[in-house]
Design a protein around this nucleic acid. Sequence first.
DNA 1: GCCTTAGGTCACCTCGCGGTAACCAGGCAG
DNA 2: CTGCCTGGTTACCGCGAGGTGACCTAAGGC
Lengths: 134, 134
Amino acid sequence: MSHAKRVTETLRSMGRICIEHDPEVFRSVLERIGDKWSLLLIGMLQGGPMRFTELLRTTPGISRRMLTITLRALERDGLVDRTIYAEVPPRVEYRVTELGLSLSEPVLRLAMWAADHQSAIIANRTAFDADAQE
Amino acid sequence: MSHAKRVTETLRSMGRICIEHDPEVFRSVLERIGDKWSLLLIGMLQGGPMRFTELLRTTPGISRRMLTITLRALERDGLVDRTIYAEVPPRVEYRVTELGLSLSEPVLRLAMWAADHQSAIIANRTAFDADAQE
DNA sequence: GCCTTAGGTCACCTCGCGGTAACCAGGCAG
DNA sequence: CTGCCTGGTTACCGCGAGGTGACCTAAGGC
């Protein structure tokens, strides 16, 4: 059996076990991290702890409101850690926890897949649209 | 340097490269597969080709409309393949393509992470809520 | 003529995600 | 007293994702 074939087989059985057998667990996690900002913020924090305003500035397009909401949700789930420094002016730092870091591994694999196959997807998309055109 | 430490370092640099440096690519893929059903359907199809109604039955909660829309989008991006059998009654089979299968790897890792850490997340969540209560 | 069965499409409506902008706490500066 | 800084919170609102249920097509059976 070829390597590619074995990988396929392995994935198939993983698929059966992980998703087909218990879609709710997968769904619950997708609902959690599948929103507009969660994964992106997890990603942003890979480079080390960041402050609220820093995240606000460097995350393109996020609003103050959504940053608050998303960070709270991530904190609630134990994916990021929030530290308040009693200084003047006040300072708050966010960093990924161990759990958040463990999530990063599959997430970054997904990101790398994204980077690798982006062009293929765009090509498929335009081809499909061209077919549908006529 | 310990193994865990090295993994951490690797992830940090991957994070910097993949996400912090170029959030748009990651965002675009998240927008694509981050919807309510795409990843789940990709997952469902790991076990082999399935028919429309079969997916409708076995995917908990999906509506006929959303199944159609999501499958079309996946087909458009070249992630699944749609085969019509000119029989009576008509039969349509969906199967993941090579591209779809390559996506499955990171996705299934995510699913396994979900399964592994679900209880930890729930624990964190209840602890956080208990703190916020008082 | 009417039912069935598979695989959809269409019109309509709801609900909640997320954006905008104003407001707030609190400590220090002038 | 007024203003400024950070790190939020709150009220308001629009839009679009997604659910519901009716309808469609095409062949065959009765």
